[in-house]
């Protein structure tokens, strides 16, 4: 077993309880709307909403799972007594969280497809549109989850780096809040500058993700429209995420202490 495989096995081991808990939560959150639909004889009313909500909520699942693992390690920080690079230590946790996320996304997509299969006569959508929609939504959720995880990792390392300064130790959370506000103010300010807006929107790629539906002949007709995704904005997000990841690794190697 390689060192990274060892890290993966360890991270699966320390997080499986929370994953099982999440699966139980998903099951409960799906069974309750199903029961309501059956009880009130209102098919296809609540459960699609529940599936969409749960799937959407997955943008927070990956960072939450990552933070739950980091919280456990942060109790002693003895996970740093390890010759693997900080990148490997973090990547192992991200990989494990992503695997969990993909499993639950596939599960929820499966539930969604079962609903579609059951009510196929009432929902008309082209197979290609259905496939595109599922792919884009799931990829988008996973990517957004990864992006937010980089922020979670960054804030976590800042918080623990400040732990060695007794003067700031009790106010670390305030530093995190101030950093969060400062970044959001700066990005909002930059987004309002016309010149930057023009540059960012210069190159676009069409992505099929805008769903439109019409109720026709006793059923829903759904089709997807392409939305322009600014390439530069996407690249910027990737750069921000990579920078946050590298800063977090640097802090973990040099500033976080046991």
């Amino acid at each position: 077993m390689s060192a990274f495989q060892g890290l993966l096995k360890k991270d699966f081991g320390i997080s499986k309880f929370w994953f099982l808990l999440w699966i139980i939560f998903l099951a409960v959150f799906l069974i309750i709307p199903l029961a309501i639909e059956i009880y009130f004889h209102m098919p296809l009313t609540v459960i699609p909403v529940a599936v969409i909500l749960l799937l959407g909520f997955h943008i927070f699942f990956l960072p939450a799972m990552l933070l739950s693992m980091l919280r456990l390690e942060g109790k002693t920080q003895l996970w740093l007594y390890n010759q693997q690079s900080s990148k490997a230590l973090f990547l192992s946790k991200i990989t494990v969280s992503l695997v969990y996320q993909l499993i639950t996304q596939v599960f929820l997509t499966g539930v969604g497809l079962m609903i579609y299969q059951y009510y196929k006569n009432q929902i008309h959508i082209k197979a290609a549109d259905l496939f595109n929609g599922i792919t884009v939504v799931n990829a988008g959720i996973a990517l957004l989850g990864l992006y937010l995880s980089c922020w979670a990792m960054f804030y976590w390392t800042i918080y623990h780096s400040l732990g060695k300064f007794p003067g700031v130790k009790n106010w670390r959370w305030l530093v995190i809040v101030l950093l969060f506000i400062a970044y959001n103010m700066l990005s909002t300010f930059l987004a309002r500058i016309e010149f930057l807006k023009e540059v960012v929107n210069k190159w676009n790629i069409p992505v099929f993700m805008n769903a439109n539906g019409k109720f026709r002949q006793g059923g829903w007709e759904i089709y997807l429209k392409a939305v322009d995704l600014p390439v530069l904005e996407f690249v910027l997000y990737v750069i921000v995420a990579l920078s946050l990841f590298l800063i977090s690794c640097w802090l973990l190697d040099r500033k976080v202490e046991v």
């Binding site: 077993m1 060892g6 890290l7």
Partner: peptide, 14 residues
């Protein structure tokens, strides 16, 4: 949550 053996196995890998 690890067993003694799993902890040893983890050290072997690291």
């Amino acid at each position: 949550s690890f067993t003694v053996g799993e902890m040893v196995e983890f050290y072997v890998s690291q």
